[in-house]
Simulated scan of single mutants.
Amino acid sequence: MTINNQIFDFRMPGNVKIGANSFNTIHSDIEQFQPKNILLISDKGLQEAGVVEKIVHDLSRHNIPIQTFTDISGEPYFETLNLAIQFIKDNQSDLVIGIGGGSALDVAKAAACLANKEEDNITEILLGHSTPLSKGISCILLPTTSGTGSEVTMNAIFGDTSNGVKRGIVSPFYLPDVAIIDPILTLSCPAKVSAASGVDAFTHAIESYIAKKATPLTKLYAREAMVKFPANITKAVFNGSDLKAREEMCWVSFLAGVSLANAGVGAVHALAYPLGGKYHVPHGVANALLLPYVFKVIGKTCMEEMVHIANYLQLGDYTDNPHEALGKVVEYLFNLLKELGLPKTLKELNVNENDLEPMANEASKVIRLLENTPYELNKKEIHQIYINSFFGNE
């Protein structure tokens, strides 16, 4: 795509399948890839729930050795990724199947990409000094939550224990070969996870919509995600067996994820990283909490987009009163936290007030995201946003 002599890439997995029972199409994908050894990467929660065992049994019809890696609980760290890469090498796996939430999918796609790379090269990539120049082995991703969009994005997020922060690694080679988005796999997702992951998807949509790198094409995806979100999020959270609502939230996650992958996100994610790194706050929870506090500040520089967003969320037509649109959108975001039972203040997350300034310092270093925000936040303003979100200053 070319606009005003600027060229924009637009990327997504080579094959995306969405819909109830789409999981069953994985068998034809396996036949196409003809792997000799399959590695199934998931998390401890799905293992304990018997989901991993059920999938292994279902895939056993192919008579291909299947190993499982489920050493993932909560947000993943680079150490976890390195263990998964070594596991692939030890078992000579040539196909990774990732199933789970964003944590499992991030480990799966990054491990598949970095498999067969030299150890020194992997170290440089994880330090952010370089990016992969090729894909390692084939990868299929199946999300069990609707939110992270990891199955269609070019980035993966990991905890950096040496610096106490979360960092993203980005490359088109992290995209899976196939993404299978089956709403039936999300039916057992707990209400709290459904709420946090759902607002995480909405955060991707709204941030990428106003991003500096947004294009008409990415805005189409973000817009559709925002239109579908209000009518389905509460149904998916409070009536998890509502397959129609679950399927619509799968679309929200997918659409927002594609927009995120190509337009990027901004300040909300930048401020969320220190919360995840230091306090291990789940990514979706951190984004949801910070969203209204951040947009109250940065929304002032994109009033036209705020009018659009208010319309997409069915908050009213503010074409003739654009300054009112921002207030209505921020009000909606605060009400959303209350409606879904998500935390509204950092106090509720047991964040220490003395850590707010150091966190602001860390967040100010996430240049890649801050530069994609249509408002130039400085360290002092970031600190004030943390203060407001600590005390609940709406």
Rank of each mutant, 00 (worst) to 15 (best):
F10N: 12
P13W: 05
P13D: 10
I18Y: 05
G19E: 08
N21G: 04
T25Y: 12
I26H: 09
I30V: 14
F33P: 01
F33N: 08
K36N: 13
N37G: 01
I41R: 08
S42E: 07
V51Y: 06
K54T: 14
I55H: 07
S60Q: 13
S60M: 11
I72V: 15
I72K: 11
I72F: 03
S73P: 00
L83F: 01
L83R: 14
Q86D: 13
I88R: 03
I97W: 00
G98H: 06
G100N: 07
D106H: 03
D106E: 06
K109W: 05
A110K: 00
A110R: 01
E118V: 12
L126Y: 04
K135G: 01
K135Y: 00
K135I: 04
I137G: 05
S138H: 14
I140W: 10
L142C: 15
T145W: 01
S146Y: 03
G147T: 08
T148F: 01
G149F: 05
G149I: 04
S150Q: 07
M154F: 00
M154S: 12
G159Q: 02
D160T: 08
T161R: 13
N163Q: 14
V165C: 08
G168R: 01
I169C: 02
Y174P: 04
I180W: 06
I181C: 08
I184V: 15
P190Q: 07
V193F: 01
H204I: 11
A205C: 05
A205F: 02
E207R: 12
E207V: 08
Y209H: 11
Y209L: 04
K219P: 02
A222R: 02
E224M: 03
M226V: 05
K228Y: 03
F229C: 09
P230R: 11
I233H: 01
I233P: 02
I233Q: 03
K235F: 04
V237N: 04
N239K: 13
A245W: 04
E247P: 00
S259G: 15
N262F: 05
V268Q: 07
H269E: 06
A270P: 04
G276R: 09
K278L: 13
Y279R: 12
Y279V: 11
N287H: 04
N287A: 08
A288D: 05
L289S: 03
L290R: 07
L291M: 15
L291P: 02
Y293I: 11
F295V: 11
K296Y: 02
I298Y: 03
H308Q: 12
N311F: 06
Y318S: 08
A325Y: 01
K328P: 00
E331Y: 03
L337K: 10
L337C: 07
L342Q: 10
L346H: 09
L346R: 09
K347C: 08
E348M: 10
E353F: 13
D355W: 04
E357T: 07
E357D: 08
M359F: 10
R368V: 12
E376G: 03
N388E: 09
G392M: 06
G392H: 11
E394K: 14
